[in-house]
Amino acid sequence: MIKLNRRGALALMGGTAASTLATPALAMNKKIKVGALRFTSHSGNFVAYERGYFADAGLDVEFEFFQAAQPMAVAIASGDIDYAVTAISGGLISLADKGAIKVIGGALKEEEGIDGQSYLISDASYQAGTKTLKDLDGKKYAVTQAGSSFHYMGAKMAAAEGISLSFTPLQKVGAIIGAMKSGQVDGWSIVPHIAKPLAAAGAWHVVGKVSDYIPDYQVTTVFTSADNAANERGMTESFLNGFSRGVDDYAAAMIDGTADQDVMVDLIHKYVYTDRPREKAAPSIINGTMRLAQNAALNIGSVQDQLSWFQSEGLVDADITLDTLVDSSYVETTGA
């Protein structure tokens, strides 16, 4: 098993309802670090911590917050954090190929009937006549990096529409928002808490749903180091158990309407949009609601589709198998 420091991991990245989980062997107050972004989609972890579900599972959790997904993958590979949630990217797959990380479960996913990620056209392009996704043919489509989930979403839509896109890497979501507002790029796709309010303000136009082009898309996954997956089974099961209880509470309040949404928004606001007063943060928290997989179930068919796309684009090695990326022994898998 390869043990990576932060520098080595960064080099690799640049190279290319109740839980039905098995009852975990309690980790006995085991101290772990969990990587997170301050997004509504990470609420499973926040709820599990605030309501004592991690503690019930024998874990003493400390959060480490990141500004983007890629540094979380590096931190997992280097052993600086133990568990995290992120989208599948070329960098993540490359780290798995080096024996550094494993996907062990599912988190955010597209589901019919629930607001999800949207395809957008900048207002400048829209006013100039780019009204539909097909009209984006030959135009600039924003991504963070080549091999990101944004790249995958744009490419899947372009293939379905029979168009060609000029993928434009801008590194950070904030930079993409600025480029969309100023008309420097023409199209993008993003989660609803960003898409909807800025569409209402006239910054861009929502012209399609990601779920129409990528049904049942497993947007983010739960992952850990390959060492934890192989050698810390009790701790890993404990983490997934606590996380899944948090997801159940989140879904009950934010999606299913069987628990108090206001109470849940108060809890999430401790971590998300903390720089805003609660009354201003609440709409964005609610707009960010998407389905998180119950019991961390993993859509293995979606993961395989993503892996195959990255390989077809030459972004990762062609001989990487699904088993290299995923340890499917922890949760139920679907879509095979």
Rank of each mutant, 00 (worst) to 15 (best):
L4W: 00
R6S: 12
R7D: 13
L10S: 13
A11N: 11
S19N: 10
T20P: 09
P24C: 05
L26N: 03
I32A: 04
V34S: 10
G44I: 08
V47R: 09
D56Y: 08
L59M: 06
L59C: 09
F65D: 11
A77L: 05
A77Y: 01
D80Y: 07
V85E: 13
I93Q: 00
K102R: 13
S118T: 09
Q127A: 08
K131N: 14
K139A: 05
V143S: 03
S148H: 04
H151W: 10
A155M: 00
K156Q: 02
L165V: 11
P169Q: 03
G174Y: 12
M180Y: 07
V191C: 05
P197N: 02
A200Y: 05
K209I: 01
I214W: 00
P215T: 09
F223C: 07
S225K: 05
N231I: 10
M235G: 05
M235L: 08
E237G: 02
F239R: 14
L240T: 11
D248P: 00
D248S: 10
I255Y: 08
V272G: 14
T289W: 00
T289P: 01
N299R: 12
N299C: 11
G301F: 00
Q304Y: 12
L307H: 02
S308E: 08
G314N: 02
A318N: 10
D319P: 15
G335N: 08
